[in-house]
């Protein structure tokens, strides 16, 4: 019972953290049809920035500043690496994304010296709490509520505001959207800003749970989050969130037995492949037919 509760709790918590990253993937994919491979690395940078900032300033300054920094980083990546390739084939943009990911990882290795750095303990989030006999940190409890609140906010933004309408339009039809006089570049930049901000918030939660940060630390959560986005139907925000929670929970169930813990990532992909086999566009994805 205790084991089940703690597994479920850590699963939900991990799922919530993946959800925040997955939204970044799904939004960008929805508009640009691009797997933004650099997103996981932006997430990792968010962790590192906090570590270096807290050395010289208090946490309550460092965290908001970090979010701003990550937003700027996401914006710059889009402008420098993706915007020049707007008319290029999709493959080129994806390669550019892989290149950016490569660059960020290598730069982080150079800057940190390739050693693991440790995330500062954030008061309250890091404190322990006991639920149904299972001891966990507050972050585990906070995550799902925070995620739901943020997602509701995001949905409100997308469904009720003008920029949200522009984003939805851009996701439906890029070219027509331009013809209708929507400034497509600012819409895309805005998408990256939202995605990066959510990843930055996610990083606070995630690295409180797993405090050791390596330059490659972003790759795996990034990949899992991306799988979650595909699993839920890429382009769909509720899909990404549901997918992320399912994947987080499954991963933690597999981790329970140490013999099988090596499969914790493999299981993510097994689920993905099964889902894609049954429903090729994910749980909530729209079916796109080729016009002949």
């Amino acid at each position: 019972m205790q084991l089940a509760v703690s597994t479920l709790l850590s699963g939900i918590s991990a799922g919530g953290q993946y959800a925040l990253i997955a939204i970044g993937y799904t939004l960008v994919y929805g508009i640009l049809r691009l797997i933004n491979f650099a997103h996981g690395d932006v997430f990792m940078v968010a962790g590192l920035v906090v570590i270096y900032m807290t050395a010289s300033m208090p946490l309550y300054v460092a965290l908001p500043l970090m979010v701003v920094f990550i937003v700027v980083l996401g914006f710059c990546i889009e402008r420098a690496a993706y915007k020049p390739l707007r008319s290029a084939p999709r493959m080129s943009v994806m390669i550019s994304a892989i290149g950016v990911s490569f660059l960020i990882q290598n730069f982080a290795t150079y800057y940190t010296g390739g050693l693991a750095r440790f995330y500062p303990e954030i008061p309250f989030l890091y404190d322990s709490v006991t639920i149904a006999g299972a001891t966990t940190r507050w972050v585990t409890i906070v995550t799902p509520f925070l995620v739901v609140a943020l997602v509701l906010l995001l949905l409100l933004l997308i469904n009720k505001t003008k920029i949200g309408l522009a984003m939805r339009a851009a996701a439906k039809d890029f070219e027509t959207c331009q013809l209708m006089g929507i400034k497509i570049n600012s819409v895309i930049s805005f998408t990256f800003v939202i995605g990066s901000a959510l990843a930055a918030i996610g990083s606070i939660l995630y690295f409180t749970n797993y405090p050791s940060i390596m330059p490659q630390s972003g790759a795996l959560p990034g990949l899992r989050a991306f799988v979650a986005a595909v699993f839920g139907g890429i382009g769909s925000i509720p899909g990404a969130v549901v997918g992320a929670f399912i994947i987080g929970i499954c991963e933690n169930i597999v981790k329970v037995n140490p013999t099988y813990s090596i499969f914790s990532d493999a299981v993510t992909f097994i689920i993905l492949i099964v889902v894609l086999g049954v429903k090729p566009t994910g749980l909530f994805g729209e079916k796109v037919t080729d016009k002949v």
Partner: peptide, 8 residues
């Protein structure tokens, strides 16, 4: 989807 499945 093919890319991510093969990666998987």
């Amino acid at each position: 989807y093919l890319a991510i499945a093969t990666l998987g």
